[in-house]
Amino acid sequence: MESLSGGFQRAAAFVATTSPLLVVDTELVIQDANPAYVAVMGRTRAELIGAPIFDAFPDNPDDPDGRGSRQLEASFEAVFRTARRNRRPLHRYDIPAPHGRGFARKHWIVTNSPLRSQDGRVIGALHHPEDMTAVAELLAAPPEPGSAAPSTDEQLWRSLVATLAFEADGHRQAQRGVRELQRALESRVVIEQAKGVIAARNQIDVEEAFRRLRRHARDNNAGIHQVAQAVIDSRLVL
């Protein structure tokens, strides 16, 4: 299996998005983590880069089920096997608390998306965890003494609806950010591949190849991604 080491370039969107994102190679070694991910997990980027993901985030030994890592590993395996995005429903996966203070109880919804090399092979995954702990805890909360059962407790359900609405809005925004980043990464792969084709065909360096690609896009009022795809498909010769 191929490593992403040296082959993954940080995109501006990866750094700027508020969605927590992690990059792993096909050996499940962490290659990058954006600021939002670092903040959510309470870790430093230096602690994560180069670590196998399940060493960085082991199962909580006090969790009687302890299935978090197995579910996440199954998701990654599905991505690498099918080259398609895989989404895991709400599940518990505790994370190490800061300063070695045990584990913090957490529930997540996780989306993993394939990352491809210039020739289209899957060489890693983009990992997007959404912290749904607040919703999970609200769903599991017992009724207050003397109150009605949760099914008839109007205040509880009002709170639940408000929380779900908040989380759903955050989820939509996060998913939109991940889709935009995925498109940006895929576009970069296409452009890099087209640069290689132009450079090899004309015996020029890739910088000159990119200038030709960009000039053609500008002169023809076309998107550089569309021009690059036409070069790859042999519909355009530059």
Rank of each mutant, 00 (worst) to 15 (best):
A200N: 12
L213D: 06
T152W: 06
L213A: 05
T163P: 00
R212H: 13
A168D: 11
E192I: 01
R158T: 11
I204V: 13
H216K: 01
R218H: 07
R179A: 14
A194V: 06
R176T: 14
R218V: 10
V206N: 02
R183V: 10
E207Q: 11
E180D: 15
A174H: 08
L185E: 09
L181P: 04
F210T: 01
S187K: 01
I204F: 02
E180T: 10
R218L: 13
P145C: 04
S159A: 10
I198V: 10
A162E: 12
Q175V: 15
A148N: 02
E192G: 08
T152Y: 06
L181Y: 04
N202V: 00
R211S: 11
F210S: 05
K195G: 05
W157M: 13
R215S: 10
A200G: 05
Q182Y: 00
A148L: 15
G177F: 01
G177D: 14
R176N: 09
R176Y: 03
D169Q: 12
F210A: 09
S159D: 06
V197S: 00
F210K: 05
I191D: 04
V161L: 15
G170C: 05
E154L: 14
R211P: 00
E180Y: 04
F210Q: 13
R179E: 15
A199G: 03
G146I: 07
Q193D: 10
A174C: 04
E167V: 13
A165S: 09
G170V: 03
L164N: 01
W157H: 14
D153K: 04
L164M: 11
L164I: 12
Q155A: 15
I191L: 07
G177I: 00
V189T: 10
P145T: 06
D169R: 15
L213M: 05
V206D: 10
R201Y: 05
S187F: 06
V189D: 08
E192Y: 04
L160M: 12
Q175K: 08
L164V: 13
L213V: 05
A174T: 07
K195C: 10
D219I: 01
A148C: 01
N202Q: 09
E192H: 07
Q175N: 04
E180S: 11
A217G: 02
E154D: 08
R201T: 08
L181W: 03
E186W: 02
H171F: 14
G170M: 13
Q173C: 04
R212F: 04
Q203W: 07
F166S: 14
A174Q: 11
D153T: 09
R212G: 09
L185Q: 06
